[in-house]
Amino acid sequence: MIYIGLTGWGDHPSLYMPASAGRDKLKDYGSHFPVVELDASFYAVQPVRHAEKWVNETPSSFKFVIKAYQGITGHQRGDIPFDSKEVMFKAFRASLQPFIDEGKLAMVLLQFPPWFNCTKAHVDYLRYCQHMLSDVPISLEFRNQTWYSPIFRKKTISFMEHGQWIHSVCDEPQAGEGSIPIVPVSTNTKATLIRFHGRNMHGWTRKGNGDNWREVRYLYKYNEQELSEWVGIIRELQQQSKDLYILFNNNSGGDAAHNAKQLMQLLGIEYEDLAPRQLDLF
């Protein structure tokens, strides 16, 4: 099956019913798409009560791609707010339980930063991550081109295949070492992840503090030709994995939802098990 959705459910005004005034954003979101990337888990390990709430607000067939906590992937500035890495991993793993219990965990996404290059120390750390999260499906996304350089590409793919990592295939600006090319290869027969980050070269390489840089980085609207070029790739990946999860991350200009629905049309997809649309009567 192909699951198409967005990264986060809070920044897509076109999806929300006016009558709800945005109070039920996840419920409204679930009437449009069958999967979402949970980003709140990146900024803090979420309380179980939050997970229970999100699980209860979505249809039984709904899936979550849960982004790993930033302390796990090395984005954390300063010391992690845990006594040890082991405690951090255990806390994060515990936060996943409600999703697992209801069959709504598609995978955990480990997205590593641009400085996380292909070295033995980093490969060893990936093995450690997999050991600490051994009972959940994990997808792996790099932001450093060395993993797919001519001398390492085959070894990177082989490493992911042997470890049954779910490959995160990315569409993003080709901005040198701090970005990766499109590598349309599945490394897990059960699932493959595709993430559309946009192609805003200026925004991708922009330096800055705070959240403003994110507003520029993901400001991009895919045109129909660009999405059409992906249809063949998606069909090929369908032959390699049972399920494909496709997420649009070009949220800054409100384009992600529109592009996701465009791709659904190009692929001839109509979902039947979505949440019922709320009627805007007043």
Rank of each mutant, 00 (worst) to 15 (best):
Ser158Asn: 15
Gln130Gly: 10
Gly178Val: 00
Ser84Trp: 09
Ser95Ala: 12
Gly74Asn: 13
Val216Thr: 09
Asp124Ile: 08
Pro137Phe: 01
His258Met: 13
Ala121Trp: 07
Asp124Gln: 14
Val231Pro: 09
Asp11His: 14
Ala175Ser: 06
Asp243Pro: 09
Leu109Gly: 09
Ala106Val: 09
Gly178Leu: 01
Lys27Asp: 06
Phe152His: 15
Arg49Gly: 08
Glu86Tyr: 11
Tyr29Asn: 05
Ala121Thr: 14
Gly203Ser: 01
Leu247Arg: 06
Leu237Gly: 07
His162Asn: 14
Ser41Gly: 09
Pro276Glu: 03
Val169Pro: 00
Gln97Lys: 15
Leu247Gly: 09
Lys261Ala: 08
Pro137Cys: 03
Phe33His: 04
Asn251Gln: 11
Pro34Gly: 04
Phe282Thr: 02
Lys190Asn: 06
Lys261Gly: 03
Asn223Arg: 08
Asp135His: 03
Tyr128Pro: 04
Ala175Met: 00
Trp204Asp: 00
Thr156Tyr: 05
Cys118Val: 13
Ala44His: 14
Arg235Phe: 11
Ile138Asn: 06
Asn250Gly: 10
Lys25Ile: 02
Ala94Phe: 09
Glu57Val: 08
Gln111Asp: 09
Leu227Pro: 08
Ile4Glu: 08
Ala19Arg: 11
Ile2Gly: 04
Glu236Gln: 14
Leu244Lys: 11
Trp213His: 11
Ser14Leu: 12
Ile182Val: 05
Asn251Lys: 06
Thr146Val: 04
Asp39Trp: 03
Arg214Trp: 05
Trp165Ala: 04
Val55Ser: 06
Ala21Phe: 12
His258Ala: 14
Ser228Thr: 15
Arg49Pro: 04
Lys154Cys: 09
Asp280Ala: 03
Pro81Leu: 13
Ser41Gln: 06
Glu177Cys: 02
His12Lys: 07
Phe112Ile: 08
Ser31Gln: 03
Gly232Ser: 15
Asp83His: 13
Trp230Gly: 05
Ser241Lys: 09
Gly5His: 07
Ser158Val: 05
Ala257Val: 07
Leu105Trp: 10
Arg77Thr: 15
Met132Asp: 01
Ser252His: 10
Asp243Tyr: 12
Lys27Pro: 01
Ser179Phe: 00
Tyr69Cys: 12
Asp280Tyr: 00
Gly8Pro: 08
Ile194Thr: 01
Met264Leu: 10
Ala260Asn: 05
Met132Val: 02
Pro184Asp: 02
Trp230Pro: 04
Phe159Val: 07
Ala260Cys: 04
Thr187Leu: 00
Glu102Val: 09
Asp243Cys: 12
Ile157Trp: 06
Asp280Leu: 00
Asp79Thr: 15
His258Val: 15
Val87His: 12
Ala94Arg: 15
Ala106Lys: 05
Cys170Arg: 04
Ile66Met: 10
Gly210Tyr: 04
Leu274Lys: 01
Lys53His: 12
Tyr218Gly: 02
Trp9Tyr: 15
Met107Gln: 13
Phe112Ser: 05
Arg199Ala: 00
Ala260Phe: 03
Asn249Tyr: 06
Tyr125Ala: 08
Leu263Pro: 06
Trp165Cys: 07
Leu263Trp: 02
Leu219Ser: 11
Ile80Thr: 13
Val108Cys: 07
Ala68Trp: 05
Gly208Thr: 03
Lys242Arg: 15
Ser149Trp: 05
Arg206Asn: 02
Phe99Glu: 06
Asn144Cys: 03
Gly8Thr: 10
Ile234Tyr: 08
Ile166Tyr: 04
Asn212Ile: 10
Ala68Gly: 14
Leu237Tyr: 06
Leu193Gly: 01
Glu52Ala: 10
Ile72Met: 12
Gln265Phe: 01
Leu133Tyr: 02
Ala256Thr: 07
Cys118Gln: 13
Ile246Trp: 07
